[in-house]
Nucleic acid binder design. Structure first.
Length: 593
RNA sequence: GGGGCGGUAGCUCAGCCGGUCAGAGCAUCGGACUCAUAAUCCGUGGGUCGUGGGUUCAAGUCCCACCCGCCCUACCA
């Protein structure tokens, strides 16, 4: 049964290039999932984009002497290029600075406001005197009033660990430019999260046994202490507040997190419009049978398991104050929130400033996308923090990707091409032949089941078990010794090629680029698994910007597919590059300290 | 300070509701093979499952405390 599946991928923040830790959290897992779901026959809509508003981008732009928009333009493009290079199959990867996004974010705000879930409140805020902008707590530092440590930040003292308010700091200073912040009354809008305690509670309870326990436990725990949360800031870079008297205020904008989570919806709407059917998004957002899967790193659980559902409930009129759905109609809340843990780099936290980092761009300049995808799938932070080391990367690449899978493909096709020149016709099959064929064919079920549950490590490990069995089969059958028994040799090679084809199919979600190569090497025609492309678009003739999109309805299906004897075979080219162990030292030398 | 997650062989990691759970891959060592990017295949050593208590007939697997690492900590005051 075909199902509509929304793959909502966390929006990378456009204040700089993204590193491999970022894409290990949201990028690769969401793409593996989406590719599998498409192969399984479901209608996938995979959306994301760059998150471009907020103070950190403004601060970075000020530092570089450019406007926030210019900075966002630059990194939007860089990030889009990188994600395309990784082969992430977005149906639409857009950005939050589009007119469409502004309109949709404002619509959600209005819907929540109309239903009474947003209210104003006067608070004390720190303002930068030179810019008039909100100075976020963590950009203020001073002397800790509790322990006297003089590098305390406005939100917390790193020395004594106490949580602070910036107004408590002795001698507060802006970390941006050293000026003394002014504490002044300012009016902001608050989202009334307590009004959703009940509906969120039953929503989350209903996910028991379905979501990863760490996500659910975390979200349930937050329920105990829901407080109204500010959804506006004193800043000129962001989405204006769509209320009379506020709309035109130059220094009031929606808090970046509020508009960012709306991006899933606005991107879906943008996608629909570009696809020629402006209402197509409704199939993923309003069809009760549709499912929405959200992928992110663990730092984002609160927004996806708590706040975004609350916003949707409020928009639908399903909180404590009831209400009615906004003009878009009632919207689906997330079916599942899939969170990754964190990747560390050679035992340390990623840090751009300390050069403890490898950017996606730099990685792809030297290594293949599938090599990184493989590493993240098999050794990434799926259930706990994991460590990326160059040694481990080289080991995995050379010992597993190249030596096990790449070599199986190469030796099988090579022998068949050399001896027969085509996919051979099998003769009578032995027990060993049938055992391997069944083993391979029967793997689709369990591997697919793991993929459905987002258990990617288990899935790829089980697929690789088949690869190992195939290598063992060849070692036992020794087809290279059967020059005087060509019929038996043909049968063996037929079996080997069939299993290579099965493995290629099962590895497609993880390794789409190399699977396409195997498809072609085995004489397959047409597109096997579609790859993303960047395209320049605009809004009604406005400024153009890049998006990632693509046609992913290739031939790939999640099923055993009989190979066709007689299909001509050419000598194969190696699937993957074997890495010189020296790259470990070279890469380590690039890291800071 | 509060909440959460993790600490399992040299390395990277699997181990849902307690009872073949002490595992996989790589690395080491020994052997086989040569079709293949010196790849593959077979065999082998190695861990008191962070520490200390407790519950139980039985605990990496549950409870408590502690140590270490990581994530979150809005609003208000």
């Amino acid at each position: 049964m075909s199902q509509h599946i929304l793959t909502a991928v966390a929006w990378p923040y456009a204040n700089g290039p993204r590193h491999i830790g970022h894409v290990s959290g949201f990028g690769v897992p969401s793409d593996v999932f989406s590719r599998y779901q498409r192969m399984a026959g479901n209608k996938v809509l995979m959306v994301s984009g760059t998150d471009e508003h907020g103070t950190p981008i403004q601060v970075q732009a000020d530092k570089e002497g450019v406007s926030a928009k210019e900075l966002a333009d630059r990194y939007n493009r860089v990030i889009a290029e990188d994600l395309t290079g990784l082969g992430l199959s977005y149906d639409l990867f857009t950005r939050t600075s589009t007119r469409n996004h502004y309109a949709v974010a404002q619509e959600i705000f209005k819907g929540l406001h109309d239903n009474g879930y947003i209210f104003p409140r006067t608070t004390m805020g720190a303002i930068s005197p030179s810019t008039g902008r909100t100075l976020p707590d963590r950009y203020i530092e001073g002397t800790c009033p509790i322990c006297g440590y003089d590098g305390a930040r406005g939100d917390q003292c790193d020395n004594c660990g106490n949580q602070l308010d910036p107004i408590q700091l002795v001698n507060p200073k802006s970390r941006i430019n050293g000026e003394t912040p002014v504490f002044t009354e300012t009016e902001h809008f608050m989202l009334d999260l307590p009004a959703f305690a009940e509906v969120l509670g039953s929503y989350l309870q209903g996910k028991q046994g379905e979501w990863r326990p760490n996500v659910l436990k975390f979200a349930l725990n937050l329920l105990g202490d829901l407080q109204p949360r500010a959804i506006s800031r004193d800043l000129d870079w962001g989405v204006p507040i769509p209320l009379d008297g506020w709309r035109d205020q130059p220094n009031k904008r929606l808090y970046v997190w509020f508009d960012a989570v709306v991006g899933y919806l606005s991107a879906s709407i943008e996608w629909a419009r570009r696809s020629g059917d402006p209402d197509a998004w409704r199939q993923w957002w309003q069809n009760p049978d549709a499912r929405g899967y959200y992928f992110m790193g663990k730092d984002n659980i609160v927004f996806h398991a708590e706040i975004w559902p609350a916003m949707l409930f409020g928009y639908n009129g399903q909180g404590a104050r009831d209400g009615r759905p906004g003009s878009l109609g009632a919207l689906n809340v997330p079916s599942e929130v899939v969170s990754s843990e964190f990747l560390t780099m050679e035992g340390r936290k990623f840090s751009s400033s300390r050069q403890v980092v490898i950017y996606v761009r730099d990685f792809l300049a030297r290594y293949d996308a599938d090599a990184l995808r493989y590493y993240i799938a098999v050794a990434g932070p799926e259930n706990q923090d994991t460590d990326f080391t160059w040694q481990e990367f080289v080991n995995r690449n050379n010992g597993e990707l190249v030596a096990a899978w790449g070599n199986l493909v190469n030796r099988s096709i090579s022998m068949a091409a050399k001896n027969i020149g085509a996919i051979p016709e099998p003769g009578d099959l032995t027990d060993a032949d049938r055992a391997l064929l069944e083993r391979s064919r029967n793997a689709f079920g369990p591997v697919g089941a793991e993929l459905t549950r987002s258990r990617f490590k288990n899935a790829i490990t089980e697929a690789f078990d088949v690869v190992r069995d195939a290598n063992r089969y060849l070692a036992e059958q020794e087809p290279w010794k059967l020059k005087d028994d060509p019929e038996r040799q043909k049968s063996i090679l037929h079996v080997a090629l069939q299993v290579v084809d099965d493995c290629k199919t099962m590895l497609t979600p993880f390794l789409p680029g190399s699977s396409n190569k195997v498809h072609a090497m085995l004489g397959g025609e047409g597109v096997w698994s579609g790859m993303p492309e960047m395209r320049e678009v605009d809004e009604d003739g406005g400024e153009s910007y890049p998006v990632i999109t693509g046609s992913y309805d290739g031939a790939a299906r999640w099923e055993h597919r009989p190979i066709t004897p007689g299909t001509p075979l050419a000598p194969p080219v190696p699937l993957f590059k074997k890495l010189d162990p020296k790259v470990v030292d070279e890469e380590l030398a690039r890291l800071g300290e």
